[in-house]
Amino acid sequence: MIGLKRGALAALFAALGTVSVSAQSGPVAIGTLPQGSLGYSIAAGVAQVVSENTDVSMRAVGQGGSSVFIPALNRGEIDFSTSNTFEAVFATQGTGNFEGNANPDVRVAAMLQPFEVGIMVAADSDITSLDDLRGRPFPVDYARQRLVGVMQEAVLDAAGLSADDLDGVPVPNFVEGANLLAQGTVAGVMLAPGSGVVRQTAAQVPVRFISVIEGEEAAAAVAEALPGSYVGRVEPVDRLPEITEPVDLIGYQYALLTHADADEDTVYSVVKALYENKEALSESHGSFRRFDPEDMALQVEGAMYHPGALRFFREVGLVE
């Protein structure tokens, strides 16, 4: 799908029954990661709550990766997507996984919830740190999800490693990486605890996460590479059996994105519905238990909010 031309991609979304909000003639798409990912579950929860509490009919549309749906968002072929704070910066500025391919019309609609990503290994593996990955077969490239590769590169660099220190196994996305882990072909994979892909993998082979940020210097290096990120400590809880001990992962805010030309009133209505319906969001997916309406307008240097979102945030006192 990476090679789709603009017209073909627009036709794809049209075939799925989704349109731009400017047309107001059918469901509005939220471009997101494939079904089974935590990103898809978050987008589906947003779509459900917005559809039930506004005049906007919204649906999640899973795609191969952000390299597909964020350019479509920038062009106005879809009006919303899910992603994260640093990808919003990368896309807008043409850096990171969008190096040389700026998408200047991407805007933030709202921060949705804290999110953590790290490296998952087999439970019986002898791997306890990033350094133990030296010489091991490990997913690389992520041709359809370049952002995963950028995050992996950030934690490896901070630990004094690079892809050259791994026995790299090219994969298109984290789903294939997880499949290879279940088969015993690779030593680990970068994933988000609590996601459907993690549960599916754990059903085939017991898994656990390891810390990927160790020490203040590593934390500072990761924060510089991934704007708006931080050390996300994840503690063992019953609902996350893959977390067998406290681990430090890449933490960041997952966000709802839109584009500069999206209808201001529509963006306002969407953000308002999310702000006023935390309970419904939590019922749609457990991860929204961590959603805090007061954090919806958190500032990240380099990320720009849509005017419709800012109008609502000013009304409720989240921004001046």
Results as ranks from 00 to 15, higher is better:
A8V: 12
F13D: 03
A14V: 04
T18N: 06
S22Q: 15
P27H: 08
A29N: 09
G31Q: 05
G36K: 06
G39Y: 03
S41F: 03
G45T: 09
V46Y: 03
A60H: 08
P71K: 05
P71W: 01
A72C: 12
N74R: 05
G76C: 08
F80V: 08
T95M: 01
N97F: 00
F98D: 01
P114Y: 11
A123V: 09
S129A: 11
L130R: 02
F138Q: 08
A143Q: 02
L147N: 00
G149H: 02
M151F: 00
E153K: 01
A154Y: 06
V155D: 00
D157Y: 04
D167L: 13
G168E: 06
P170Y: 04
A178M: 13
A182P: 04
V197Y: 09
V197H: 05
R199H: 06
Q200W: 06
A203W: 00
R208N: 01
I210L: 10
I210M: 03
E214D: 15
A218C: 10
L226H: 05
D238Q: 15
T244W: 01
L249V: 07
Y254Q: 14
A255G: 04
L256I: 09
E264M: 03
D265P: 02
V270M: 12
K272N: 09
K272F: 12
E276K: 15
E276P: 06
S284F: 07
R289L: 13
R290K: 10
L298R: 15
G302D: 08
G302P: 10
M304S: 13
Y305P: 13
P307T: 10
F313S: 07
R314D: 07
R314H: 08
E315N: 14
V316D: 11
V316T: 11
V319M: 11
